[in-house]
Computed example of a mutant assay.
Amino acid sequence: MGRQKRKGESAIQDEVLIEKAKAGDEHAFRLFIEKYKNLVFKAIYPVLRHEKDAEDASQEIFLKIYYALPQYSAQGFKAWITRIAVNHAIDVKRKKQRQQEMILEPEVLHALSPSEENVVVPLLRKEQRELVKNRLQDMPVNYRKVIEAYYIEEKSYKQIAQEQQVEPKTVETKLYRARNWMKKHWKEDDF
């Protein structure tokens, strides 16, 4: 009975802190962080499996929670912040994996055995194709066609030149300009 009452009091205290934080009370939000930092860390550590990454992500999560507080409406606070925390940790992990896959430089690829290279290189190409495919709509149409043909459909300069009724040298120039456009307009972690 006493334990149930304490649990209820804790929920009421949370609601008071949340209302104060929503109203811009920084002290209330700091108390809230103190109270829930361990819960957030325990929720994200199994996803990230690295203490420093989990600590960095925790700070970003509390910032997200702060901005999301106005949308919170008494639907189970621990579950709500845990969901935000885990979703953020998954995003962080995906981004990190994508960066690590794209970082494999040619000298690293040369160090791989032929059988490893047969697995890694196609995976990298597939990953790169997916990233390009997801961002194609952002490109000017004249670049989009040549990038789609070369990277997504994996056609040769000669095939593209025949289809577009231009010289292979023109395809090479278009690709060069399209790649420059991508470097200029897309962040490194997008491509």
Rank of each mutant, 00 (worst) to 15 (best):
residue 19 E to T: 13
residue 19 E to P: 02
residue 19 E to M: 09
residue 19 E to K: 13
residue 20 K to N: 14
residue 20 K to G: 03
residue 21 A to T: 06
residue 21 A to D: 06
residue 21 A to F: 03
residue 21 A to P: 02
residue 22 K to Y: 06
residue 22 K to R: 09
residue 24 G to Q: 04
residue 24 G to H: 06
residue 25 D to Y: 04
residue 25 D to R: 02
residue 26 E to K: 11
residue 26 E to L: 13
residue 27 H to R: 15
residue 28 A to E: 03
residue 28 A to V: 05
residue 28 A to Q: 01
residue 28 A to Y: 01
residue 29 F to W: 04
residue 29 F to H: 05
residue 29 F to V: 10
residue 30 R to M: 08
residue 30 R to F: 04
residue 31 L to D: 15
residue 31 L to Q: 08
residue 32 F to K: 00
residue 32 F to T: 05
residue 32 F to E: 01
residue 33 I to Y: 10
residue 34 E to Y: 08
residue 34 E to N: 09
residue 35 K to E: 10
residue 35 K to T: 14
residue 36 Y to W: 09
residue 37 K to P: 00
residue 37 K to S: 12
residue 38 N to C: 02
residue 38 N to L: 08
residue 38 N to I: 09
residue 39 L to F: 11
residue 40 V to Y: 00
residue 41 F to H: 15
residue 42 K to T: 08
residue 42 K to I: 01
residue 44 I to T: 04
residue 44 I to Y: 06
residue 44 I to G: 03
residue 45 Y to H: 12
residue 45 Y to M: 10
residue 46 P to E: 06
residue 46 P to I: 06
residue 47 V to R: 04
residue 48 L to V: 04
residue 49 R to G: 11
residue 49 R to L: 14
residue 49 R to M: 13
residue 49 R to C: 11
residue 50 H to T: 06
residue 50 H to P: 00
residue 51 E to M: 11
residue 51 E to V: 14
residue 51 E to Y: 14
residue 53 D to F: 05
residue 54 A to Y: 06
residue 54 A to H: 05
residue 54 A to M: 10
residue 55 E to P: 00
residue 55 E to T: 12
residue 55 E to D: 13
residue 55 E to N: 13
residue 56 D to V: 02
residue 56 D to G: 07
residue 56 D to P: 01
residue 56 D to Q: 12
residue 58 S to L: 03
residue 60 E to P: 00
residue 60 E to A: 13
residue 61 I to M: 11
residue 61 I to L: 10
residue 61 I to R: 06
residue 63 L to N: 09
residue 63 L to W: 10
residue 63 L to I: 09
residue 63 L to D: 07
residue 64 K to N: 14
residue 64 K to E: 15
residue 64 K to V: 11
